[in-house]
Each structure stands twice: as C-alpha cells, then as structure tokens.
C-alpha cells in the first residue's frame, strides 16, 4: 500500500528518466544569428546524439564559436532553438547549463584565486559541494596536482588551459564542448588531454570539439560537421566523408614548368609552391602519370603518395561549396 501511494510519482520519474535517455545530447533547430549586418549563422540544423564524439570544424570566422556560445547561453540566437539534453537553452537555461561543460577558447582566469579555489568556486556555482574525490581525479589526470595552491596568475599558458578543462568538468556534465582546447599547448598535453577525453567518452559523456588539428578530429571523432560562412557545409560520419572525398593524393615536384595537358584532369590545387598535387582513384594511375611526365621530359625530384585524409575533405568542402 505504501508503494502504491508513491506510484504516480515514481512513474513520472521513470518516464522522465526514459525521455532524458532518448533525448539527443545537443539539438539545434533553424538557428540564425547576425551581428549587425554580418550574418554569423544561417539556418543551422544539427543533432548530436548522446555518447557521440563529434567534431565541429571550419575556418576562422565560420561561426563555430558563435554556435557554441548559443548552446552555452553566452549569446542568444535571433531565431531558431537550441537544446542541451532536451532542455531549451533560453527557457530552461538552468537545466541546460547543468548538463553542459564548456572549455572556452580564450585563456581566461580570475587573478584573485588559486587553482584549488577556482575549482571549488566553479563546483559551487554548479551546486556541487562534496566532489573532492572527483576534483582529485580530475587534477591528477590533468597533471595539476602540484599546482593546486598556486595563484592562477603564476601558471604557464598550458597549465591555465588544463585548469580551464578541469573547471568545465567539475560538475561531471553529460555533454562537454571543447572550443579549440589544444590551441597553443604542447604535444604532451594534447596527447594526455585526448586520452582523457576518450576515457570520458567511453564512460558515456558526449564530446563536441572544435580544433584546427584535423588529424585529431579524424582519429577521435565519429561524426564531423563543417561550417563555412555560417552555414553547415558538410555533416556526416568521418568514414562517409572520407569515402565521399576518397582517393589517393599524389604530390610531385619536377624540373618542368608546364604540366602535360593529359594530366590536367587529375590536378587539384596545390597548397605548396612548385608542387603538383593529383587526386587519383587507384594506385595503378601512378605509373601512367609518371609515364606522361617522362614523355614530357620531366625529371621527378620528389614524390609523396598517401590516402586522402580529413584535411583534404576539409579543403574540398571549403573550396567547393
């Protein structure tokens, strides 16, 4: 009888928990944002499912940070809606922020406090009081343990970046957004940071990252969205994108100045002076290209052959659309 009294309440909680588990981690519906006459985002629709490791890529000024800011409640969209774990970022801003951890791009800190105080204050903002074990684990994984009682002013750039990551994670958010977290940090930290992110992702956290290191995105992320001029220019799994833009990339340097006409169709724009870059569909085409070059009396100085990667996909998308 006692249990029956609580039955409706229990059912509501069960339904709510079920709904939460079914919600996408992030959902963006028809978002538009302008700064004066500059259109920063145009009709963005995007969904990131729970547990995904998602990369948001794009050149500088493409709108990545604006999109992240809208999700984090740091700015408001002109139209459309954004949701974090099913919570509207404007109408249910407290719930949505509770579910989100953001590592901002800028190296910001409060010069009045030590690392320990910063983490304790940030925990308090999110209503976490007894999270000492988690903070210990966090600071240990991020190599901050020896710096806990140092003032933020005295830390190096890399250490400040680690503190930013720790601050974003103090409340164990189900969704974590990292806005260029590896900008200006050394290789060791980059590696340890990605290992930690992979660990968090394996524990069910959804991770969204923006980065200029495309090889990282290729290795880590299952899905990629590419922004260009405020529009979503590509959105697919990393595998599909690589397949779509698949091919073999052949880079050559020769003593010739003019490329034989028959090879022009294979040529893609080169980003290095005096280098010709070809896209081939099969390795067998290499010999025919070399044969044409020999026929045209070109001597090959250097040759590089590799499979297309996310960087090639990125440049194709940015160039084509």
């Amino acid at each position: 009888m006692g249990l029956l009294k609580f039955y409706p309440w229990v059912m509501v909680e069960v339904v709510r928990a079920f709904n939460n588990s079914m919600q996408p981690a992030l959902e963006i519906k028809g978002i538009n944002k302008s700064y004066g006459s500059f259109k920063a985002l145009t009709d963005i629709d995007l969904k990131v499912e729970q547990g995904e490791f998602f990369a948001l890529l794009g050149p500088n000024g493409a709108g990545k940070t604006t999109l992240i800011s809208i999700l984090a409640g740091l700015c408001v969209a002109d139209s459309g809606g954004a949701f974090v774990m099913g919570n509207n970022v404007v109408e249910e801003y407290q719930k949505s922020r509770l579910n989100l951890g953001v590592v901002p791009q800028e190296l910001v800190y409060d010069p009045f406090f030590t690392v320990r105080e910063m983490l304790s204050i940030q925990s308090g903002y999110f209503g976490c009081r007894k999270n000492h074990h988690w903070i210990e684990e966090l600071t240990d994984k991020l190599g901050l343990t020896s710096k806990m009682d140092e003032n933020m002013r005295t830390l190096s750039g890399g250490m400040k970046r680690r503190v930013l990551v720790a601050q974003a994670l103090v409340h164990k958010p189900p969704v974590i957004i990292l806005d260029e977290p590896t900008a200006g940090v050394d290789v060791e930290l980059r590696k340890s940071l990605w290992e930690f992110m992979k660990h968090l992702n394996s524990q069910g956290h959804t991770i969204v990252l923006t980065t200029h290191y495309l090889e990282e995105a290729e290795v880590l992320c299952e899905r990629v969205g590419m922004l260009k001029d405020g529009r979503l220019a590509a959105l697919d799994t990393t595998r599909n994108l690589l397949k779509r833009f698949s091919g073999i990339r052949l880079s050559l340097r020769t003593n010739g100045k003019v490329l034989p006409y028959v090879l022009q169709k294979h040529l893609v724009e080169s980003d290095v002076d005096d280098e010709w870059v070809f896209r081939l569909s099969d390795y067998s085409e290499v010999e025919s290209i070399l044969a044409e070059l020999r026929l045209a009396k070109h001597a090959v100085f250097s040759l590089d052959l590799r499979e297309a990667d996310l960087e090639d996909v990125f440049f194709s998308v940015i160039k084509d659309k």
Binding site: Y93, Q122, Y125
Partner: peptide
C-alpha cells in the same frame, strides 16, 4: 574586471538564476 579579463564567462556558463 570580470568582463575585461573575460573570466565572467565562468559565471555566465553556470546554472545560476
């Protein structure tokens, strides 16, 4: 100070009413 140094972001990201 928080605005100029940028650390107001920590507060704006928090679920405070």
């Amino acid at each position: 100070q928080s605005k100029v140094t940028g650390n107001i972001v920590f507060l704006l990201l928090a679920p405070l009413s």
